[in-house]
Design a protein around this nucleic acid. Sequence first.
DNA 1: ATGCATTTCCAAAACGCTTTGGATTTCCCA
DNA 2: TGGGAAATCCAAAGCGTTTTGGAAATGCAT
Lengths: 349, 349
Amino acid sequence: MNLKELSNRLGLSPTTVSRALNGYPEVSERTRKRVMDAAAQYNYSPNSRAKRLATGRAMTIGHLLPMSKEHEMVNPIFSDFIAGAGRRYAEEGYDLMLTVVRDEDEAETYRDLATRGAVDGVVLHGPKTNDPRITTLTSLGLPFVVHGRSSNVPTEYNWVDVNNRRAFERATSLLLDLGHRRIALVNGLAELDFAMRRGAGYSDALQARRIAVDEDLISHGEMTETYGYARTRALLRAPCPPTALILSSIIPAIGARRAISDAGLEIGKDVSVVVYDDDLSYFRNDGDVPTYTAARSSVRYAGRRAADMLLDTIANPTASKRHLLLEAELTIGQSTGPAPEMRRYLDQG
Amino acid sequence: MNLKELSNRLGLSPTTVSRALNGYPEVSERTRKRVMDAAAQYNYSPNSRAKRLATGRAMTIGHLLPMSKEHEMVNPIFSDFIAGAGRRYAEEGYDLMLTVVRDEDEAETYRDLATRGAVDGVVLHGPKTNDPRITTLTSLGLPFVVHGRSSNVPTEYNWVDVNNRRAFERATSLLLDLGHRRIALVNGLAELDFAMRRGAGYSDALQARRIAVDEDLISHGEMTETYGYARTRALLRAPCPPTALILSSIIPAIGARRAISDAGLEIGKDVSVVVYDDDLSYFRNDGDVPTYTAARSSVRYAGRRAADMLLDTIANPTASKRHLLLEAELTIGQSTGPAPEMRRYLDQG
DNA sequence: ATGCATTTCCAAAACGCTTTGGATTTCCCA
DNA sequence: TGGGAAATCCAAAGCGTTTTGGAAATGCAT
């Protein structure tokens, strides 16, 4: 069943039927009703491909899922971000197109999406410092929103980000307040912009208390359970181990817990742990007292807001660039407590 | 730059240019080369929307990401499955379209995708027993592949599944061999077909040893960390706690570990744990000795094979239905050991 | 040189929709 | 009962490809 056939059955022209269905005012309500009913009856909906050709709009938003050859990992936060964004797309009649791509092909893929006219806009994930993809997308003239920010990019661009620096500054301060002085930072890959910002927040807090930053306590890696385990284990075996850890995601924190437990230590007592919590749907860190003390910000919500921003950009292409900085909330859970020395002091008191 | 403009510059007809680019034999190699070069120079690639209208093919595969209102969780294995499947789509020139949908709208969405002609086929996730979606898709005539199987569906359909029953039968047998007699099963949601099969495998193994199935040891839930924690905690506090646990995913196993640790017990010694491991990219359970004893089967590989199957079905629509049953491998890790009573016996020996 | 098969290319139709620019009808008021 | 405005509808021209059905040019053997 297509438009021509439907209009034949109704004894109307395709023009009128099309207008009736798309809510144009040039058609009487009586006719519109008749058309709508017939469309429902024959289960007609306009062919996407034809519609998109005629309107010149793809009605599709693209997301690239880049996979590197060495560590071919899918970012675990990706699915929750997509869930948030995709819900909005669906509500607005947009489709979501996901392209799994080797990361060396990423720029080429953006170019391809643009010239093919396959999407009306894209979301850029995991920006690095001075990310070249931003320049690429800008020059392609393809509307886009960055999830995160990229330092040192000369041009303006749309972004939705969390105040990572402040979140980690606050997390570090919390541990300092508890008497911890040797605090390890288990951070994301060094080239990622958010990791850089988090590192800066951590350093800020230490320096505000005149505590030197010990590079041995800082590490960068992919946010896997294995990485969290290996790194924590190494830290605890060092000559002068930290009394507290800050981890950039809840996934490596799972590994950290395992390493702490393996070492015969207790989390929240012998070793304090603060995590950055993206509020992943399968790993809710809530309850009366959350398992982990955490700086929390819902990545799903970020996805929703990024979608809003992108759709708005597509609708108003000439408007100035949009920015949204979300704040993480710091919630106390079971994984933090006074530093061991402090604990002895308190016990005496 | 479109086809007409390109052909103008070349002094050729659109027909010839189109044929040259699409590798048809009616064009001389010399002309083809000239066209290809010009296309590269002007960075031309055919407009997807027009191409798809003309060919009548969407060149797109659909995946639905259903989200229920109560427990709005994204299945953590989804992203790895997509990564595997999406890679194949990209290689074959297909796009991947993801639709985030409230699960009560799922059937309606399939119908819409079909009538709109938005996709050439879909992958069905998380089939329940006698899943109505299979009937819907069959009647729509939309090619599809099920990731998993659905019992009691009268018609034939394509599927890629793991031999869940055997995997759980073997996992249970392993624990029985180690002397465990009270083995808990922490399973997925009861309505999911794979949970049913896993339960059957578990029961098979017990009954083969003439051990009665204790319903109190079996539970169903969503595979979150929180669920694994709560359930394990409850089990360990019961009057007659199990000495071993089998968990349907590595995610609740994380919670189980936490509960065991909280109870002052040691995993692999006081309590044995076997997990079903989907080989998630951010939670690799490998190393010299894996953390968990596990029945492992890569969900990413399953995604790739499902994609193969679907593309093949689209190319040969009349062929008979295809099935692929993958076997999980059972690998011994650090989380299992002899049952405590057995251990005492062995220690004496 | 001639005839025939190949090679090489093209004009025009088709895909299914939207949208432009009228044409026709209806309505309202003087 | 006109006349103009408003309401209602339509024919036809796109949108940018692919594909059908030839036409012209070339190559080869005679």
